[in-house]
């Protein structure tokens, strides 16, 4: 059975032709949460940019829902259900909270009732956003912006959700809330690819995980296996021997 998302030998580079990520092989199946771990500069965000079409593949193939999307434009990937929550939340700062959420449903714009229903669902998931619906998104707190970013992505009815460092720049309490939402989405069966520096949090919710270092995958396995592996413990969990 083919995977929902398959990356085969994917390499990508910025302006200089030196690849930032090399020979990435990765699969994601229905109902699965796969975490990609790695430190700063390991190529995590580059991987996501390549996945969403903001960077070209130098080599390799990206297949999604049975179609080859290696050369697709970003908006085409969104139309096919591959939805990214970008790092740093990327609010449309001057637009209201509700307009941000509505634009999340841009690909379904011809189905007004679907948009209205999606909006109601997001407000149910994040009641705080209903209170702030007419405020400019740029004036919200980091945690509230994270809600907008997640809600905006859900408005698109993702087939696969790509999360880029959801813990980035957030207070610990807000990070916990965010991961509670991620866990809930996983339990509802949403396939998620989670890019995260906070390895402990990520391994907590993930089924499987990969470790990226200097643009290559250096370890992979079930979340439980990786939590026990000495390499991951030393590099990313900040502990030498004691079990979690």
């Amino acid at each position: 059975m083919p995977h929902l998302l398959t990356l085969t030998n994917v390499s990508a580079a910025y302006a200089s032709a030196v690849p930032v990520i090399r020979d990435i092989n990765l699969t994601l199946d229905a109902g699965e949460l796969v975490a990609v771990l790695g430190g700063n500069g390991a190529g995590k965000s580059t991987l996501l940019r390549t996945l969403s079409g903001l960077l070209p593949c130098l080599t390799g193939r990206v297949e999604f829902a049975g179609a080859d999307i290696t050369r697709s434009a970003p908006h085409q990937r969104v139309e096919s259900g591959l939805i990214q929550v970008p790092e740093g939340r990327q609010m449309l700062a001057g637009l209201s909270v509700e307009e941000n959420l509505l634009l999340g449903g841009y690909v379904h714009r011809r189905h007004a009732e679907q948009i209205a229903q999606g909006l109601a669902e997001v407000y149910e998931l994040f009641p705080r956003l209903l209170e702030r619906r007419s405020q400019a998104a740029g004036l919200l707190s980091g945690g509230e912006q994270q809600m907008v970013a997640l809600g905006r992505a859900l408005m698109a009815k993702p087939k696969v959700l790509l999360l880029d460092e959801p813990s980035f720049g957030l207070a610990p309490l807000v990070v916990a809330d965010t991961f509670a939402v991620i866990r809930r989405l996983r339990e509802q069966g949403m396939p998620i690819l989670l890019i995260e520096q906070n390895a402990r949090k990520a391994l907590d919710v993930a089924d499987r995980a990969l470790v990226l270092r200097a643009g290559q995958i250096v370890a992979s396995g079930s979340a439980a296996e990786l939590s026990r592996s000495d390499e991951v413990k030393q590099s990313y969990l900040g502990q030498a021997t004691s079990p979690i």
Binding site: P74, M91, L92, A93, L95, L102, A156
Partner: peptide, 24 residues
């Protein structure tokens, strides 16, 4: 209108707009 919202999204942040499915 959706076209207008897309235009304003592009004005704010074209990269984000394209990640929302806007053909910038």
């Amino acid at each position: 209108t959706w076209l207008g919202r897309a235009m304003r999204a592009c004005a704010q942040n074209p990269l984000t707009a394209s990640l929302l499915g806007v053909n910038t």
